[in-house]
Design a protein around this nucleic acid. Structure first.
Lengths: 132, 132
DNA sequence: ACCTCACAACGAATTGCTTCGTATATTGCG
DNA sequence: CGCAATATACGAAGCAATTCGTTGTGAGGT
């Protein structure tokens, strides 16, 4: 799903997104940390994690601090940016550009768990209605 | 973004999703119709469309009526199924499993255009709250 | 019957993603 | 120092997705 939507800035691939999730959750990481966080229990090797991070660095998806022997990588895109981008793409490709349709589907299939969440959504709707 | 999530039933790839969109929008189509709907103005050849549909047929993504000389293809998955599946995957991979978070993001970045849509969303929220 | 056109089938080239093995360098320690 | 452990770098294999060219075949018109 990746390399044909916009050649804009690169779309993370599946495996790259897995790595970004680790970096978003845990902050900057060494290769070893990434490896242990998601490759170890899948049986994949250390150099796989290394290569992925090197490729992602070449693509500009992560930044690298190589002042120490064990280089430290951190995400170069925020989680929010990625969320927004994938969301927009999905709305376009699957919901004919209608975000409302997508929201209805999402709420229908996976209704909000807590009253707190429900409240947040209502609050946002109010704000939208007031501002329009 | 496709072939590593569940080996369950296959995820449509990018190009496959484009074709499914055509079949969803226009109903069953011959290869030529698909080609003209989305390959022609991108400069891709007829056999590309043909091959894609053959591959999708082998994967079970489309069904084929070959009783006529020009085979007729139709989607073997509904748009709704696909929407649900991609949505669930995205919530998992990018929103830590929280559909509400995704809804908030969606409404924040692409607020509903019409009051009608707004009303629909509110109605659904009411129904959810009542049923919980 | 023959020719032309539109079709399906299939093999193959290309590209990108993912994984791994090997080579090489650096650090810490006996 | 010399050794073991741990790093990076890099090439290459394997696989899937996409695109195209070629070939064979059936249908319709002359």
């Amino acid at each position: 799903m990746s390399p044909r939507r916009h050649p804009d800035s690169p779309w993370p691939t599946e495996a790259e997104l897995d790595i970004l999730r680790v970096l978003w959750d845990r902050g900057a990481c060494t290769v070893r940390e990434v490896h242990e966080a998601l490759y170890a229990h899948e049986g994949a090797g250390y150099t796989t994690a290394l290569k992925m991070l090197q490729i992602m660095h070449a693509k500009g998806l992560v930044e690298r601090d190589d002042s120490q022997r064990a280089h430290v990588y951190r995400a170069a895109v925020t989680r929010q940016r990625a969320q927004k981008r994938y969301l927009a793409d999905m709305v376009q490709r699957l919901f004919n550009g209608s975000a409302s349709q997508m929201v209805l589907h999402a709420l229908g299939s996976h209704p909000p768990a807590s009253r707190e969440e429900l409240k947040e959504i209502r609050a946002l709707l109010n704000k939208i209605e007031a501002g329009s």
